[in-house]
Design a protein around this nucleic acid. Sequence first.
DNA 1: CGTATATTCAACCAAATGGTTGACGTTTCG
DNA 2: CGAAACGTCAACCATTTGGTTGAATATACG
Lengths: 106, 106
Amino acid sequence: MTAQLDQVFAALADPTRRRILAMLLEDDMAVTDVADPFEMSLAAISKHLGVLTAAGLISQEKRGRVKWCKLEPDALRGASVWMQGFGQMDAIDLDAFEVFLEHQLK
Amino acid sequence: MTAQLDQVFAALADPTRRRILAMLLEDDMAVTDVADPFEMSLAAISKHLGVLTAAGLISQEKRGRVKWCKLEPDALRGASVWMQGFGQMDAIDLDAFEVFLEHQLK
DNA sequence: CGTATATTCAACCAAATGGTTGACGTTTCG
DNA sequence: CGAAACGTCAACCATTTGGTTGAATATACG
């Protein structure tokens, strides 16, 4: 449980990986296509995808010779709930509430 | 901005540091008292506190010979908002909403 | 003043991280 | 079949991380 949080937060601590997650928010993608906009080797991106998969933040499914990457936003829930616990110190976390509402009403 | 997220998430990725934050949720504490429940050197805890301070998650103020550590929950907001962006894929984030409500009604 | 308390600093160490390159297995396509 | 595309693996490297210990600094106390 705590190890799961370790992995999720550690995965999110890298800007390349956050960018990948944002890309996958748009649509599922093949590994090669994920790597395309980055100025680093395919192997490096493959490793980043491994980290994201280990954290449960994405899943990967191989169809034919291409491996599809898919966002798994549920993995963020544990981390999100943990963080919200600290909101108790705030008078009112208006920003978070606003975002929450927007997303519920959509 | 992205570097700020890097630091916050990296700081949260360590269970010792998360435990420290949870302790500070109760009350402000001196460095020595923070270190007390941990089975590691004071110097190690001091380093962890340095990481948390650099990330903006806590602040430290020296009064006399003791340095007080104080939670700065606002630093979590940027990270929280970033994460909530992925909630748009969720049906409903009930857990988070419940925590939010509890904290507002307190 | 001298000593104890609170905290950091510096040097060191092992392990993890983020990247590279080159070789390798699979699957598809002509 | 042979070649190209997709992706991973293995070895390597530099840097960062999380911990240690021992000395150093600053403040308080008797």
